[in-house]
């Protein structure tokens, strides 16, 4: 349609704005029709920046999320538990890589994203700033943290942005193993000695409230909610997903014979849902702003890993250069 192209060239600012508006309407119509938006398609600048922010935060969370559990790889109680934990932590690295790739399709580079994480500019999930003092914490993380992640992530498989949705399908397929292995640890501990059961209960007490915070601020205070829902990046509100998580988890805790650390928790027969106590949003804000128990430790570990790995990245490039030069000279003279 070259005639349209000619029109745009000579158009006034107002006419161009009108053009952008029409493009945005077309975009919204595609989203409303459940069409997937792909990397090279036209999209509003805010859609792009919202996705870059969300996908990269998600990727950073997967990468930082390796640290609390990685802490227990050398101390897992059996060889099988060690193998399982290594596989799980490797999956988290993989999830981070899928998601960084998805973010890169939007025109941001891997190095920019990593810089944002290491400089402390980018956020990641508040949950990974809590410590894992016992083996039971590994169980509680799998059961609750990965459980909450699944609740958040399943709707993202239908996100309007194709590359993100496809990455999430792969992530979700692998995440179920994480949750089940965590519950399996909790099950074994809660059927064990009184000391082991106490260990499981204490881990549950530590992780329950931070897990509920993973769904983000309450709907009334959420700044990104409505726009993301209109663009079908987000399908359900924070509070809806949090409620669903509580309703799913309460019977699982009962089966373990453990008590959720919330005296206000009760079944509401009329509404067919669990009521639960107030979440400490001040704590959430503190952790998000960098003042949680492990924020400094986590960032220091990532910075250290990046700095210590620099020579490997450089050596691999030098080797690739040398191989290429050798191949080229063989082609030329050989």
């Amino acid at each position: 349609m070259y005639t349209q192209g000619l029109d745009v060239q000579g158009a006034s600012a107002a006419e161009r704005a009108e053009g952008a508006c029409a493009a945005e309407e077309r975009f919204q119509a595609r989203v409303d029709a459940e069409e997937k938006i792909e990397a090279k398609d036209w999209m509003p600048a805010r859609y792009r920046s919202t996705l870059i922010r969300q996908i990269s935060q998600h990727a950073h969370s997967e990468i930082v999320g390796m640290l609390p559990e990685g802490n227990w790889i050398t101390r897992a109680p059996t060889l099988l538990r060690k193998s399982i934990l290594i596989a799980k932590v490797q999956d988290e690295a993989g999830h981070g890589a899928y998601l960084y790739s998805a973010a890169e399709t939007l025109g941001v580079s891997r190095d920019q994203l990593i810089d944002q994480l290491l400089s402390g500019k980018a956020k990641y999930s508040s949950i990974f700033n809590y410590p894992t003092p016992t083996w039971a914490d590994v169980g509680a993380i799998g059961w609750l943290v990965d459980g909450a992640a699944i609740m958040n992530q399943i709707p993202l498989c239908r996100c309007s942005y194709g590359p993100y949705a496809r990455a999430m399908v792969r992530v979700c397929r692998e995440e179920s193993f994480h949750q089940r292995q965590g519950y399996d640890i909790m099950l074994q501990l809660s059927r064990g000695t009184p000391e082991q059961k106490r260990m499981a209960q204490e881990a549950l007490n530590r992780w329950w409230w931070p897990a509920l915070m993973m769904f983000g601020p309450p709907d009334a205070a959420s700044t990104h909610g409505t726009e993301s829902q209109r663009w079908k990046i987000k399908r359900f509100s924070n509070d809806e997903l949090r409620q669903k998580f509580v309703d799913f988890t309460v019977p699982q805790a009962q089966f373990l014979g453990l008590t959720l650390p919330d005296p206000a928790l009760r079944w509401n027969e009329a509404q067919q849902r669990h009521e639960f106590g107030a979440i400490d949003w001040d704590e959430f804000d503190r952790v998000l702003k960098g003042h949680g128990p492990c924020n400094a430790e986590r960032l220091a570990a990532r910075r250290n890993a990046h700095a210590e790995g620099a020579w490997v990245r450089e050596a691999a490039l030098a080797y690739a250069d040398k191989q290429r030069t050798r191949r080229e000279s063989e082609q030329r003279y050989g």
Binding site: Y98, S101, R166, L317, R324
Partner: peptide, 12 residues
Amino acid sequence: HVGSLHAADARM
């Protein structure tokens, strides 16, 4: 096609 990744060369 399943996705993308970074590597120093094709072998890696």
